[in-house]
């Protein structure tokens, strides 16, 4: 007979694994299992309900021959490029301003970051009101005397996408600011002092010494905002609902309406897999390098 103490000791040694096992199972099933499930639907002919047959890549071919999907992907590229570059620039600029040993820094930081605490639905609703041509910004400027001023982006199919950029930049440039500010605070002051001693101007120091040192922060900001951009759903939903006339369609909205509204479940699943592929392409190399860093480099 095995002595009780041996069993006890064995159990004690296995305890950490036992504690993690439920979470591990849940993650395996709810993330990886469900991804596989979605993938299998994307290879099937499902319409209203899932059917588990196999039609190969048919749904992907159908997806990529849908004009609406092409609009969505194009929009995503335009939106992401503008959103990423503007939010990064704003974030960096504000962070540098805040790093000048100014008064009321805490208050200002709060101001630049509060939109990040709001739901995208709330900011969509707020911007929809501010940007509506009838009573919003356009009317305000016209009332000030510039009567021919026109700002109808929200209802203009050619420009509606840019209103989403405005709202998204407003909402999340504070996030970029927070990361850049953390990066700036981590820079050794003696390097800046040395450059000052050599008579370099403040602007020069930032352009050629400080900003290049922020490379890791740039990487984080671009990767993290990039994956937010791909998933953008709520903001579009609340601000333009894909309109006017489908002009602001996004992959996430396409997926939602194909799956739950247009009875094209398999096409919806295929579009979800495309989104997943895009996020994996951005996040996996990033996480790989982040995790391989020795932990003293936080």
């Amino acid at each position: 007979m095995i002595p009780m103490t041996a069993i006890k000791r064995y159990l004690a040694a296995q305890l950490p694994k036992l504690v993690l096992a439920p979470s591990g199972m849940v993650i395996l099933v709810a993330i990886y299992g469900f991804i596989a499930w979605t993938a299998s639907v994307s290879f099937s002919s499902s319409k209203v309900m899932p059917i588990y047959d196999f039609v190969g890549l048919e749904q992907y071919i159908r997806l990529w021959s849908t004009p609406r999907w092409h609009v969505a992907v194009e929009n995503l590229f335009v939106f992401s490029a503008l959103y990423l570059s503007i939010a990064t620039l704003f974030g960096l600029f504000i962070a540098i301003l805040l790093d000048q040993r100014i008064r009321a820094e805490g208050f200002l930081r709060t101001v630049f970051l509060y939109p990040m605490a709001l739901s995208f639905i709330v900011s969509g609703v707020a911007w929809k009101w501010v940007l509506n041509p009838g009573l919003g910004l356009q009317k305000l400027v016209r009332d000030w005397g510039w009567t021919s001023f026109t700002f109808d982006w929200l209802v203009n199919p050619n420009y509606a996408l840019y209103t989403i950029v405005i709202a998204a930049v407003w909402q999340s440039s504070g996030f970029a600011m927070a990361i850049f500010l953390a990066g700036l605070r981590g820079i050794d002051n003696s390097i800046i002092k040395a450059a000052q001693m050599e008579g370099a101007s403040q602007v020069r120091i930032y352009v050629s010494v400080v900003v290049p040192m922020l490379r890791p922060a740039f990487l984080s900001v671009i990767v993290l905002l990039g994956q937010i951009a791909i998933k953008t759903f709520d903001l579009t939903f609340a601000l333009t609902n894909g309109g006017p006339g489908g002009a602001t369609e996004m992959p996430s909205m396409f997926m939602f309406s194909a799956t739950f509204e247009r009875n094209q479940m398999a096409v919806g699943a295929a579009s979800a897999m495309m989104m997943l592929a895009a996020v994996v392409a951005i996040m996996v190399p990033y996480l790989y390098t982040e995790l391989r860093k020795p932990s003293n480099e936080h």
């Binding site: 993650i27 993330i31 499930w37 979605t38 998933k231 996430s252 979800a272 989104m275 996020v279």
Partner: peptide, 18 residues
């Protein structure tokens, strides 16, 4: 590492199974 990817998962990829 396997768990960490869950932070960035586009939820669209699991919406239907959920």
């Amino acid at each position: 590492a396997v768990m960490l990817f869950g932070c960035f998962l586009p939820l669209q990829a699991v919406l239907l199974p959920i």
